[in-house]
């Protein structure tokens, strides 16, 4: 066996990984079908799609680059405010708004990445948390611009590209959100299966070795942080465009914690973790929230503790695996 063959083999293996799994086709077809088949659930589905996108952006950081963030809502909220202000002051065309919000949040991510990428996990946790808190305070204090605690209302939402109205049309706005999500998932999939994506995983695995084989660790991390911030900003802008008010809850700690929880429930490092997580989370919230709205918090906490105890990086799936494994062991014993 010569080296040419092994290189060829690994290239084929990588290409195979990059190709779409049949489940992905099924998933997106089902999502497209839900636009027509589940008209009563469009509000919930829109929420799920937006949270999935937000969780995806965190997955790029956590699952691929290994950066822990407790303040990812900073970029989500920033994108939402930028989109709303842009729509009020310039044009209400949604796609333009998304692009502007994405660029703005990306720039914020670029600027803050220099702070985040120093130090250890713990310092990163504190710094990301601190950045989100500072952003919250800024949004709260600049009430002449952001509406402060009252929220920002009166944002115009024109038809998409001038032809596709989404304002107060749940089906249309769900379709719009889905298409945006699809495009961004597609791009994310290309990113994580590119050499760039593999270098991120190398850095996550072992920063010292990664840098000694010539990967510029800091530049790569800055790049992925910027991309993730931009994704989060677009998710925020989507939420701003589909709900009538942008408020401080877009940027508070609860949102950062929730998105982390969703991602962890679904599992990190395969892009669709956020979809699974946010769907489970929001559906559970709807049902448990209906029974005991006040004590929903308890069940989130409980879920977190259980997941932290038993699940590693595959979220709910690893719990299933454990149960299955335990059942098999039981069967094997007698």
């Amino acid at each position: 066996m010569n080296t040419g063959n092994t290189v060829q083999d690994s290239v084929t293996a990588l290409k195979k990984k990059r190709a779409w799994h049949w489940l992905e086709y099924v998933f997106w077809l089902a999502a497209a079908a839900s636009v027509f088949l589940l008209p009563s659930q469009h509000a919930l589905l829109t929420q799920i799609a937006i949270w999935s996108l937000f969780a995806l952006s965190l997955d790029l950081l956590l699952g691929y680059a290994g950066i822990v963030s407790l303040g990812h809502a900073a970029y989500f909220g920033f994108g939402a405010y930028v989109a709303a202000l842009f729509a009020i002051n310039f044009t209400g065309e949604p796609i333009t708004g998304l692009i502007v919000a994405g660029i703005a949040a990306g720039l914020l991510g670029l600027a803050t990445s220099l702070l985040v990428l120093r130090g250890t996990d713990l310092t990163r946790l504190m710094v990301t948390l601190g950045i989100a808190l500072v952003m919250y305070e800024i949004a709260n204090q600049m009430s002449w611009l952001t509406g402060g605690a009252d929220g920002l209302t009166g944002m115009p939402v024109n038809p998409v590209l001038g032809i596709f109205p989404i304002y107060f049309r749940p089906a249309n706005s769900y379709a719009y959100v889905l298409i945006v999500c699809f495009v961004l998932f597609f791009v994310a999939k290309r990113i994580v299966h590119s050499p760039f994506g593999y270098s991120l995983r190398a850095i996550k695995g072992n920063p010292l070795r990664a840098s000694s084989i010539g990967i510029p660790n800091n530049l790569r991390l800055i790049a992925v942080y910027t991309i993730a911030a931009s994704y989060a900003g677009i998710a925020g802008a989507l939420l701003a465009q589909t709900t009538p008010v942008v408020s401080l809850t877009y940027i508070d700690f609860q949102r950062s914690a929730d998105v982390l929880l969703m991602l962890i429930i679904g599992g990190t490092g395969y892009l669709y973790g956020g979809v699974v997580g946010s769907a489970l989370f929001l559906v559970a919230q709807k049902f448990i929230g209906n029974i005991t709205p006040q004590y929903w918090e308890f069940w989130i906490g409980f879920a977190l503790v259980v997941i932290a105890l038993f699940a590693r990086d595959r979220g709910v799936f690893s719990i299933f695996e454990r149960i299955l494994g335990a059942l098999r062991n039981d069967k094997a014993k007698p």
Binding site: V68, D121, L125, L260, E297, I300, G301, L304, V305, A308
Partner: peptide, 15 residues
């Protein structure tokens, strides 16, 4: 890992 500790302790706080 620190991440798991964070999740666990935030969960405790919520509870």
């Amino acid at each position: 890992s620190h991440l798991e500790q964070v999740l666990f302790t935030i969960g405790l706080v919520f509870m």
